[in-house]
Design a binder for these strands. Sequence first.
DNA 1: AATCTACGCGCCCTCTGCTGGTGCCAG
DNA 2: ACTGGCACCAGCAGAGGGCGCGTAGATT
Length: 299
Amino acid sequence: MFTSSRVSSFHRHMKTHANEKSHLCHLCLRTFRTVTLLRNHINIHTGTRPYKCGDCDMAFVTSGELLRHRRYKHTHEKPFKCSMCKYASVEASKLKRHIRSHTGERPFQCSLCSYASKDTYKLKRHMRTHSGEKPYECHVCHARFTQSGTMKIHVLQKHSENVPKYECPHCATIIARKSDMRVHLRNLHTYKATEMKCRHCSSVFHERYALIQHQKTHKNEKRFKCKHCNYACKQERHMTVHMRTHTGEKPFTCLSCNKRFRQKQLLSVHFKKYHDPSFIPAVFECPKCGKGFSRWVVY
DNA sequence: AATCTACGCGCCCTCTGCTGGTGCCAG
DNA sequence: ACTGGCACCAGCAGAGGGCGCGTAGATT
């Protein structure tokens, strides 16, 4: 509802409801209500921008645009201040948009899903996820992207020579993307309240990277040491067999002659040699000492 | 009525950061 | 051969900057 204390303003406003557009642009045949609007419009055709910025090459059709430009680029004057944080803006509409980040208000509802946006642009951008539209094309490999920023990163990482790299301050790992570095730091270098145990010993850690580094120290380590002699080995099963040399235990018995063995393999060799009819005895005889061998061996 | 000025809306852009799928590699 | 972990990668949303342009208030 329009109200005004001035008759002139009222009359002018009423003209906005009338379709009377008597001022014709002779370049595109578009019509305007006032001569000022027509003049501004013609300035767009002719490129006439009377309001020039004194600090850069920009020029504008109206003085208001110039003032706003100067605030953005040169004076940095931000008259619109947020009452809830330090944010300040050049334009009131920007403050209004910013305040939605405090209130959580999302006036722009997607018609196809539950998503709602705080501003029109985000909704428009979101709609590409439904349409499948990918407006941005890589000029090198012609891959297509939904957002310009995604394409920019793609070109930088895939087609640029001086690819930026991010080095982890804790472990010197090189990672291509800043956001991935955050993931790396979160997964490997953040303190965790719950203890992480070493899979080889009783050590515990609160940082995953420290655990991994520690576990590497166990690699090639002969962790199983005999308490009776100098013997050491990597696997527990080897130590079990070795211990029988100290205990005298011989758990494997030959069913044919009751001879006992410490290892299953020794029993197997014994059985084949003495009780298996298909066993081929030594056929290659040493020409010097006469000892027989089952295989031909060159010394 | 014409003009200047301030305001509001809309559009487009960039920067930022999180997420989940994927391929590779070590265990 | 299988599995879990990690860097790589594209998809996607949040926040904010900058400008075009129409309209209303104020002034000439």
